[in-house]
Computed example of a mutant assay.
Amino acid sequence: MASCWADADRRQRKSTSPKGHAQDVSHSLERNISPRVGTWSMGAITAPVLLEVLAPVEKRGVVETAHRVRQAAARVDRSC
């Protein structure tokens, strides 16, 4: 998912987002989403699945991280 996000981010922002930002978001996706659904196709990750995956992130007390990961996941192209 992180590589799909990076590709989508480059297309949407035309490479204007800072490199550090892209690395931070990719790392956050890898850490918080990929362990649970990393091998799934993007089309298989529905909103309820994403909320279920993010529940443990919220329980860790990092609600802002969960919010940002959800936003990043929403920007991922469903064709990945």
Rank of each mutant, 00 (worst) to 15 (best):
G20L: 01
S79M: 05
S79P: 02
I33W: 00
R11W: 10
V69K: 02
A55L: 10
S17G: 13
K19N: 07
R70H: 15
C80P: 00
V25P: 00
A73D: 08
R36C: 08
S3K: 12
V62T: 08
C4S: 12
E52K: 13
P18Q: 10
H27P: 04
S26A: 14
P18E: 09
D77E: 13
I45D: 02
R75P: 05
A8M: 05
A8S: 14
A74M: 12
A44K: 13
R68T: 08
D77Y: 04
G43D: 13
V53D: 02
V76T: 06
E64C: 08
E30M: 12
R78F: 03
R75K: 13
V62N: 05
L51T: 12
W5I: 01
R78M: 11
N32M: 03
I33N: 01
S26N: 15
V57P: 00
V76H: 03
Q71R: 15
N32W: 06
Q23G: 07
T46E: 00
S34E: 12
V62G: 06
A74T: 09
K59Q: 12
E30C: 07
R70G: 10
T39V: 11
A72I: 02
R31K: 13
E30Y: 06
A8T: 02
P18H: 09
H21E: 05
Q23W: 07
D9S: 14
P35Q: 03
L29Q: 00
E58T: 11
A47K: 14
R36W: 08
R75I: 03
T65L: 08
D77V: 00
A73G: 09
Q23Y: 07
V37G: 02
R68P: 05
D7T: 10
Q71W: 14
S41R: 10
S28D: 09
V37K: 03
A66W: 01
K14A: 15
A74G: 12
K14L: 12
S79T: 09
S26F: 02
S3M: 14
R75W: 15
A72P: 04
R13V: 11
